[in-house]
Amino acid sequence: MAYRLDRVTAVPALIGEHRDFLLIGGLAGAAKDLAALTADGPHFFGMAGGMGAAVMIGLGLALARPEKKVLVATGDGELLMNVGALATVAVLDPPNLSILCVDNGHHGETGYQKSHTLRGVDLEKMALAAGIKSTCTVAKQADIARGARMLRASKHCSFVLLRVKPTDPPKVKRLMNPADSRVRFRLGTLGRA
């Protein structure tokens, strides 16, 4: 399947009004996508390490805040590092958790080495096989409306695989200290550290 869309426009188009979500951004490109979208906002926890942790951080947050919609944006490389998390999420099926995997077929942060997805691994099929009930792949402009609906309005935990060309995420200055990020997120979303 073709990698044609540009993440710089496709991620904002899929998420829409970002203030409707609590947002977790996995390292590295996906965190930059969300930092640009939210102006590194207080409802966003962005990572630059802990590769493979994003989906499970999203699960812990979604279980703790059932009244809020939680969106995890992650990359194909980050997700593959802990792909079993899809199974852990699926058996609980938290309806307020949505996962957006920005799949550029490469490990962009380390020099655009080919990732498993470019060599045939289909992460939407893996999510579906793990038991996630709402899944789709967004590979062209016409798919975006369906993907956006699924992230926002699914009755189940959802997984949207966004196929994009291997071009850089937005250049954005963001908070890099993980302890400061933790405190900022709690202050911004709970009103206390």
Binding site: A53, M56, G58, G60, L63, A64, A87, R182, T189
Partner: peptide
């Protein structure tokens, strides 16, 4: 009650729980 596929998932889960105040 969250059954994990590998223990490290539980570390990340706990961090997310704290972000949500559980």
């Amino acid at each position: 009650s969250v059954a994990l596929t590998t223990e490290e998932e539980g570390v990340a889960l706990a961090c997310g729980a704290h972000l949500g105040d559980q």
